[in-house]
Each structure stands twice: as C-alpha cells, then as structure tokens.
Simulated assay, not measured.
Amino acid sequence: MTQYAAPRTRPASQRRPRSRDGSSWRVPTALLALTIIPLVAGSLRLLEIAGGPQLLPTNPRIDASPVPLVLHVVAAAVYAVVGAFQFPARIRRAHRAWHRRAGRVLIGAGLVVAGSGLWMTLFYPGAPGGDLLWTARLVAGSAIATSIVLGFTAIRRRDIDAHRAWMIRAYALTVAAGTQVFTQGIGEGLFGTTDLSTGLSVSSGWVINAAVAEWAIHRPRARRTRRARVATAGS
C-alpha cells in the first residue's frame, strides 16, 4: 500500500499572521457614519450663522447668542472625526506619535464640547424637552468633561486600561447626537413632540451610547480571560 505523509505544518510561532488591515478601518468607518447627520446639520447651521441661506428651522435662541453653538459644532466635528481614529489598536501601534498629538487636541476639543453644551443648557431659555432633558444635558455634559479629565490623569500615571476606558466613555457620550437622530425620530413619531417624549427619546440616546461604551470596555477583557483559561487548560 502506498503511504501518504501527513502535510507538514509550521509551528505557531512561524506562521504568518493573517492581515487585519481591513478590520482597523471598521470602527472609524462606523463611528463616522453614525455622526454624519449631526455633522451635516451643524455645518448647515454654521453656514446660516455666517450669512448663508436658511436651510434649517429657525431657532431664536441661536440667533440671540450664536457663540456657544459655533464653539460646540466646530469642537464636536474635530472630536468626532479625529477621535474615530484613536480607538483601533493597529492604528495606535503604527502611529504612536500621531496618537499622542491627536490626543492632546482631542482633550481640548472635548472640553470645549462639554463646556459649550453646558453653556447652552444653562443660558438658552425655553429649549424643548422640559426639565427632564435639561437635567440629562447637564449630566451628559458633566460626564463628558469628567471622563476626559480622568482619562488624562490616567495616562499621566501610565494606566493605559483606565485611560482607554474613560476616553471611550467620553467619546460615546459626545457622539450620542448620532444615536439621538434615530431615538428622537422614533420617539416623536410614536408619541408626538411633547416635552416628555422629546426628553425621553433624546436622553435614551445617551443611555444607549453609555451602555455600548461599557460593553466595549469590558468585552475585550472577557476575551483575554477566556484565552488565558484555554492556554492554562492546554498546558
């Protein structure tokens, strides 16, 4: 009988890792897609403030005091777009210097987003959503600023895991405007445009993004734990 030799396999240490370049762009692409509608709306509002055509509904609060909105839109655009490329590990490892420089810019932009959001909440009278949304905006703005400060102090003491967790939380809350496009549209479509329905639907956008952030923070840790258990069991 003819004997067939079993195919030779390389040791695990000599195998070439499969390319994952495509996966490095999935997270930034998804985040940019989430924020595209708020970014376009904000750009149209800036165009209107600069004297361009009015393409969005009139907002007398903005007409009376446009400065905080301008700061909010510009800072949020920088934070959303640049921040989207901070999360993939492959990009961070390949461009460490850029990651650090961009991080410094994002800290400033994120604090401007939070500060201008709080400014508008406190000093723009008669905003829709009632006391519920007013309170939710105060909580969200304060949480963004706190998360950024804690993320900065964490990286100063070289606590990478804590830095990553706090920056994910800050980014998730900041880009909740993209999620709120859907939650507000669905909520007002089902329950009308009362202060209660608006407050609940907009607030749910922050809640959803906060929940996704916590999942993203803890999910990789669970995977590493499972891998370590499998390796220990096989040794």
Rank of each mutant, 00 (worst) to 15 (best):
R96M: 14
I155V: 15
T183A: 07
G234F: 06
T35K: 03
R96V: 15
R164G: 07
A94M: 12
V81W: 08
V112L: 08
G51Q: 07
L133N: 03
M1P: 11
M120Q: 10
R221Q: 14
P60H: 07
F87Y: 13
T58R: 11
R61A: 15
V212I: 14
R90M: 06
Q86G: 14
G126T: 10
A170S: 15
P38I: 09
G103S: 06
A75F: 00
A216G: 03
G129E: 07
L106Y: 01
T121W: 09
G205A: 11
A210F: 12
R227C: 06
P17S: 10
I36R: 03
G141Y: 00
D161C: 02
V113F: 02
V70I: 15
Y4S: 10
G234T: 15
A177R: 02
N209Y: 01
T29A: 14
I37L: 13
A233Q: 10
P11Q: 10
A172N: 02
V181P: 01
A33T: 14
I91W: 08
G151S: 06
V112K: 00
A114H: 00
V139R: 04
L122A: 15
D159W: 04
V40P: 03
Q184F: 13
L133H: 08
I36P: 01
V207Y: 01
I144N: 05
R227M: 12
T193D: 07
Q54E: 14
P11V: 08
G115C: 04
S24P: 00
R221I: 15
P68R: 01
S43Y: 09
A136K: 02
R104S: 08
L138K: 01
T198S: 02
L196C: 05
V73P: 08
V105W: 10
G42Q: 04
A228T: 04
R8E: 11
L44K: 08
R219V: 06
G22D: 03
A170F: 05
P66D: 11
L39I: 12
R101I: 12
I186C: 00
